[in-house]
Amino acid sequence: MVDMLLMILAGVGVALFGFVLQTSIAGVNRKIVGRIQKRYGPKWYQEFLDIFKLLSKRSVTHGWIFDFGVIMALGGIIGTAMFMPITSSLMAFPGYDNFFIFVYLIAVGMLGMAMSASGSGNPLASIGVMRALTTMLAYEVPFMIVVLTIIKLTGTSSLSELGILQQAGGDFNWFVIALPLGGIVAVISLMGMLGKKPFVTYIAPAEIASGPMVEYGGKQLGMLFIMHEITVFIEVSLFVHLFLGGAENILFFIIKYFAVYTALNIMSSVYGRLKIDQVVLFFYKWPLILAVTQAFIAIYLGWVI
C-alpha cells in the first residue's frame, strides 16, 4: 500500500517534471521562433506567466459538462504522463510503460476536451473538434504501423525496454536510423500530433476563432494550457524513447527532448497550413506507403540497418 502511494507520488512527480520541462522549452522555443522572424521574442518563462495569469482570472462557464470535460481532459493527461519513463530506468511504474497505454489513455484527455468544447454550445468549437479528430485519424495510422514494426522486431512494447535495447547496440542502433523510412514517417506524424504547421488545422484563429478553445477563458483555458503542455511532453517523449534510443540519464533525455522539439518548431515555422482534407490525403498517401513498405521489408525481408 505504502509502495503504491510512493509510486503514485513519483508518478505525480513525473507529470510535474514534464509540465515544467515542456513549458520552459516551449518558452525558449517561442524565443527561437521570434529570432527566426527577426524579432526579439518573449521571456523564456513567458509560458508560465501566461498559464498562471489564466488561472488567476475569473472565467465563465457554460454548464457542468463544460467544467467536467476540462477536469477529465487534464486528469486523463496527467494520468498518462504518470506512466512515462524519463530515462530508461527512472519511471514511476516500472514494467507498465506499455506503448498502448499512452496512445489510448491520452485519448481520454482528448475526449474530455472535445466534450467540454462541444458542451460550450459554440459551433466553432464543434468544428474545431471535428478537425482535430480528423487530423488524428490521419496521423495516427502511419505512426502505429511504424511502432508495430518496432514491437514486432523487438518483441516488447515497453518504452524503457525499447530504450535499453537501442542503447545496447550503440548510437547507430536508434530506430530512427535503423528504420530510416519509419523514422521519416514518425517525424511527420509527430508534427501532426503536436499540431505543428503544415498540419495545424484545428487551431485556426482567423478562420474558426481558435477552434475548440473558442469559449474558454480564465481557469478552464489555463487548465487546457497545462494539459496541452503535458500532452506535448508525452508525445515528444514517446518519440525520444521509441526512435532516439531512450535516455541513459536525465541530462540526455533533456538534450534529446530539446533537440526534437526545437527541430520540429523550426521546420514548422517555414510552412504554410494545409486544408483538413489535404492533411488526410497526405497522410494516407506517402507516410502510409512508406510505413507499410518499412514494415514489410523489416518484418518479412529482415532488412534492418
Partner: peptide
C-alpha cells in the same frame, strides 16, 4: 506586433476571442 517593435517581448499577443483576451 511584428519584428519592428515586437510586442511579444512584453508578453503581449493577439487572441481570437473575447473569452481569452485581457
Amino acid at each position: 506586433m511584428t519584428s519592428a517593435y515586437d510586442m511579444e517581448r512584453l508578453g503581449m499577443g493577439p487572441m481570437a476571442t473575447p473569452r481569452q483576451a485581457d
